[in-house]
Design a protein around this nucleic acid. Sequence first.
DNA 1: GTGTATATACCGACTGGTTGGTATGTCGTC
DNA 2: GACGACATACCAACCAGTCGGTATATACAC
Lengths: 201, 201
Amino acid sequence: MIQPDARTKLLDAAIDVIRAQGYCATTVDDLCRAAGVTKGAFFHHFTSKDAMAVAAAQHWTDVTAPLFEAAPYHADPDPARRVLAYVAFRKAMLTDRPLPEFTCLAGTMVQETYDTHPEIREACGASILGHARTLIPDIQAALDAAGRTTLSARSLAIFTQSTLQGAFVLAKAGGDPTIAADCCDHLTRYLEQLFIKDTAQ
Amino acid sequence: MIQPDARTKLLDAAIDVIRAQGYCATTVDDLCRAAGVTKGAFFHHFTSKDAMAVAAAQHWTDVTAPLFEAAPYHADPDPARRVLAYVAFRKAMLTDRPLPEFTCLAGTMVQETYDTHPEIREACGASILGHARTLIPDIQAALDAAGRTTLSARSLAIFTQSTLQGAFVLAKAGGDPTIAADCCDHLTRYLEQLFIKDTAQ
DNA sequence: GTGTATATACCGACTGGTTGGTATGTCGTC
DNA sequence: GACGACATACCAACCAGTCGGTATATACAC
């Protein structure tokens, strides 16, 4: 087994610590302690705390993207079922682990930084919207198959992510992860309705 | 015209500053400057910064609740239309002002504090879930009228709030308020579907 | 109506611990 | 022996919170 270098250890630690505490409340020392490295290593790899946040958002994408690419639901030949299976996959992810571990790093960071740290905001936006973009082809195909020509696949893809981000916020606010699972069920119901052949036109 | 006291000025300032900068990044001096009061006044009224945050969450409820109570949509005799008009009201609120001014204080704060400041988390949760609760009667009536007996009005009320919170996050991430308006449209479409008489059973 | 007591609201200089960041040194390796 | 990857020691700025003090209002006694 190869030892990850200090940079990777710091970025991995950032994902855990920032999701639990928030970006601002997380100190450089916190990250170094969690990663088991020294402050010298931190500033060797990152010019500043903010620069690390930008890298962490990218790292978040790098870590999560393969998770979805490797997910089994891509095998289904029906695009509508693939989209629904994606939501089911997301729901499964958040029912079997503690709250801080299923929330989104980019969503958490962007709330704190969107007005004060443009680079971090942009990196978080790229992570979230980039993930949304991966859903567009299946959603487009499902909408086409249902004859929903007036709906934008991009807008619906963004809505799925917005629903998930909102689910995280409400789960945190209520201190109850089942709230998030509940929100996934509503999203599923909405999508099912949309993907049924539209006979009204 | 009566001058608001230092406490009220600080809580009003907190709503603006924290929504833009986040809770942790907002210093006590920031708040005092924005409110035009001194640090002495701050710690005269609040025992700590955290205690102020709890009061701010309550103040947020106190300020926003009358806004919804006074809204015109309550006049409609049809509960389903009242719920839809509520969402339209929320959408209107976020299309005519800059991003930081239409987001939710409680939603912003809870992301940063839910794992580290139980009292603040609870106060934010009470604000958001309390608002959701005000929607339950209309939603319940609309579901009843549509014959949707299997759906929980509470769960759907929470979902409306989760959708709005998610819309804020995505709007911040994309740096684009129209994303939030788009999400409102999807929510409206979902609710319309649910409030149509269910003939399938 | 004057003096005393008490409480509330507020002021602003100060402090001690924390934090992001730096300067310099060490060690392995190519 | 130069360079990348760290470690250690240190610093200046900042920040939550303190503390002694002032101004004003109310209450009661005489």
